[in-house]
Amino acid sequence: MSGTETGPVLQVTGLRKTYGSAVAIDGVDFTLERGGSLGIVGESGSGKTTTARILVGLERATAGQVLLDGEDVTTPSRRDRRRRARSIQMIFQDPYLSFDPRLTVEESIAEPLRLHGHGDRARIRATVATLCDQVGLSTRNAAALPRDLSGGQRQRAAIARALGIEPRVLVLDEAVAALDVSIQAQVLTLLDRIRRDTGVSYVFVSHDLAVVRYATDTVLVMRHGAVVEEGGTEQVLSAPRHPYTQLLLASVPAPGWDPAAVAAANRALAPADRG
């Protein structure tokens, strides 16, 4: 990607978002290294998705700053938005909702290339073919409509479309959560390979600690709109310091798992949340 740049690709400071009197996120700071992968872990209401949506410009921050390659993109103008789209792309949980059902998969993958002026028809066709190849979609898959693809194939298509304009950052919001386990592993290994091959950086939003362990280098744990713990993923998951991170880890089923003990720990941590 833009190989001349140095320093972190994304720097976020003091991010805050309120809806009326409700505070969605407050005081979120983080840095994403070039070619790195940052996990944002949390449950519903943690603010992880709000944070992701602010990064890609789907929401406007109430306060704070997002620097992309050192450039302030917090409150973009219309023209800046397209430039930002070129730098940051997002993948959603259900890729079916983000495809035009009337366009074939290859037409959908070609669309951002046309929009961002990636050459003439022939060149775009060639790029689409390369992209499909990169994510493991067959020629038949590429010529099909989204509804004729399986969930895993649609997610591959979404990844191909996002990668076409060579973004520097890919924000993945629960991108493998809806996939069957055997397919989830395929998409995770694909994402891993793409990051190594292209140097793209990931912001990986997920509720699944095991997925985050596999897919990220650093991690933020969010709860009620605030970051409660952060650090190297292996470090945080093997020696969690915050009681909430400990509870999240204990909540993951494993042989000998005691759900009653986890439930008791949950009640001890959050007596005020119940009802």
Binding site: V181, S182, I183, A185, Q186, A210, R213, V252
Partner: peptide, 20 residues
């Protein structure tokens, strides 16, 4: 094997080819 584990060493995922 396809499920990334939380415990033990971080192993490579073994994806199952094809789909269910």
């Amino acid at each position: 094997d396809a499920h990334p584990g939380l415990h033990g060493p971080r192993a490579a995922l073994r994806a199952v080819p094809g789909r269910p």
